[in-house]
Nucleic acid binder design. Sequence first.
DNA 1: GTTTCGTCCTGAAGC
DNA 2: AGGACGAAAC
Length: 963
Amino acid sequence: MTDPTPNDRQRELIESTEGVYLVDAGPGTGKTFAIARRYGRIVDRPDVEPEDVLLATFTRSAATEMKERIVDRSAYGLRELADAPIRTFHSHCHDVLREHGYAAPTHLGLDERITGSTRVVDDELIESERFREFFGGFRDDHPEHAEFYRVLSEPGELLDLIRELASKGIVPTTDGWYRDGEAHLDGDFEAFKERFDAANRPRNDGRKQSALREDLSGFGRDKAYLPDAPSKSELRGGRGTKRLDDDVAGEVFHEDREDLKAFVHDVYVEYVRFALRRNYLTFGFLQLFAFVLLREDPRVREAAQFEYVMVDEFQDTSEIQFKLALLLSGTDNFCAVGDWKQSIYSFQYADVRNILDFEERIEGFAADLNDDADRVSLAGTDPTRIELRENYRSTASVIDLSERAIATPAASGEEVDAPLDEVVELSSNAAFDNTVVEGIRHEDEHEAVLSKIQDIVGDDDYAVEGEDGEPRPPEHGDIAVFTRTRDYGRELLDVADEYGFPMAYDGGIELFRTDPAKLLLAWLRILESDADRGWAVVLERAGYAFDEIARALETESYPDDSVAFRDALRELESVGAVARRVLDRYGFTGDTADLLLHTIQSMYDSTTATRGELIRFVERGVETGTTVDLSANAGDDAVTVQTIHTAKGLEYPVVVMANMNEGRFPPRAGGSSVIEYRDPVGLRLRKRYSEVRDYPHVYDNWRHDVLRRCLPREYDEERRLLYVAVSRAENHVVFAAGEEPNAFLDALPVATEETDASVEPVDRGEPADAELPFAVTAPDGPIGHTPHSLMDESVFEEAGERMETAPESEPEPETRGMDFGSRVHDFAEAYALGDDVTPSNDHERRIVAFLDDLPGERHVEEPVTLPIDVDGRRVTVSGIVDLVHVTADRVEIIDYKTDSTRRAQSEYRKQLSVYYHVLDEWFGDKAVTASLFYTTDGTRKRIDPYSIEELRALVRETEARDD
DNA sequence: GTTTCGTCCTGAAGC
DNA sequence: AGGACGAAAC
């Protein structure tokens, strides 16, 4: 694809080896080629060796590819480059620590050491488990932070926060914060004030209220604030007011956060200590210690610095990685190559500002690093920008489409401004431009996609570039389907499988959570011990209803043919053979089944695992959602399905961008944790714990509700994701949507048409035997069939509890811990329902006292009206209902919110509330969703639109329809 | 035209 | 839970 003779811009990059460069390398511009040539040019000099040049990448595969390309372009062979520092940031940090890191923790005041036996935990789920364990102990040792434990819903939130702080170089020491870390936690009022003012400017020449005031129109709705909060009208002023008071900025920003900082500090530093004592480091800590070490120890820094530093995919760097790269530069020969438009890894803490504000940041960071010593020699250098402008991949039409994509509003009314003048226009080098860009829409989206692909294959209107540069009709292998989510890809694959359609998934899949894996595990358990957890799954798969399964398990009487199958399996020698037979039985063919077989077999072959060990191996895979790489076989003529993230860096003649549906591109959540760090407001707490009249409460933090609305919340990353997807295409782009196309698709210059969804079944010679292995009897009971797979641990256990008697409420310690909300809820609900529950601790006695104290009836006698939604088998009751009990023949409203809470926000503060969490409880096959909200305020008013009688009728109707 | 109210909707990607 | 959007109220 790439011409071996560099174009002018590439040559500029290749030849400019001295000084600071920022290279804007858009898609298809031959970036890897140019970097490889540049590297070759540097190391081919007699006085420079590969160990003098750091080339940092983000993935191991990128590093490997880079090495291979360099071998093609330099005098060095692969063997000579084996140990060359062409590697990921993480592995380089690991190297630095291995060599010099022994005493790195002392710079934070820690006595622990990093030793040769310190391991890197590279599995995030294992890290979560360890953190959970750590936090349990921490909580016991630090009762002084109780107010924070009570508002956290789970420890994972804290781990996320720690990771985020680490990615920004905010590090605790034993007695405070490293360097200027605390200033970051406090935030920057001036910077915040600017954002506040921008958001608070009235629009339309003062005729229209500010965006901030409008955003706050729902202030306090469905929330409870502490009494110091202003009322909605105090905050916003009366009707006709155009903006908030200027004082509000200071009021919301300045808040006593000493306790919060102390809490986060203690958790953070103790967790670092815990990891070191357990002799492990996480990805985040690897970078953190390398950063501190390089900054503090001049001797190490000198030894570790390079003459030349190049960073690939610079748009994916985090703040600490930028700083690490600077610390590793012994000279000012620094080259960052990237494309801001392809920054789609913010969840890995990539900070797109590293590349957008490169000049400011490099200056600022270098000055920071040099605050009290000469550490990096990049300060004061003026970076040169190089823009690669020739695209060797796509037609002009595709390039044009991608540039429109990066400027397309993701929601109606969204204004795209940010850095669009930074888009470097690319020119196309394609041999011809016959590009088709179209949108298809059909409610059976999966079928529509497959059907469209069948039309495209072999059609000259969709010609692609052949080996000889001449147009030829497309084949399956020329086409890729991109999705945002793995789930969608799996669904599409399943549908493709039904039709025998040649389609292959590329990327990580949660192998052990697929149906084939679950069924295999079930049969292994049956073989091992006739386990209920095995039979339950097998019977459910066979179509038995929940209550029938319960009966079968109880009496241990199973369908004859299943018993026969089990006995046949028992005869088999190897686990591989068992797996094969099980997969055959259910007609599982194709890649997923193959991968499972392969994974099982290689595990069983390479070790001397027993069947029991294999079971635990698979169980662990289910629990942790272990992903296994499934790669599309390049030899097959099949359509590739992958997520946009895995597609980054690849190219295809025809790209189908699937799942362009409403709601698929939500704006980045404005922080969903209770404790969060945001620029420029620092560390913040969203909910706080307090007691009112001795009753436990969790309150929302009103300041936070205002603050967060001043911070940017844009669809930028989603737009970039779309850009990445479109720019993979060489010739044609097809967008596909189901019922309702999303705003992106609406706004793009793409004609979207209703298409048909008739897929031609493909006969591939091996018809899948999809018939059930034995007769299924319809369940006669109206309830009892759960749509969840019983494989789900929690569902299974819950089912067990339902089948037998309810578990005794076990005594628990006083209000403490993460599950506060749900425990309140569970107990309160049971008590309110009149179940025979006895309070077993102070906490529960409080709840009882509280409920007994409620004025009025707990069971509502008068007709109540409420909004409900009956959608298929699911009955959702929401809104004002707090607690309902739905059974097959009746619905009881136990308690409900008052209308006044919506209108009179100030009432909230007078109400005593045990308030929290969503109730999502299964009653037979009906899910009832409601939030729990008790009030001591006696006012209860009616709300439309359905009466309880109508609700009952609807429930009966749904049941009749289901039967 | 601007503001407020009411209802609907959905929940992520992978080093 | 909280954003988006359309309808109703000002």
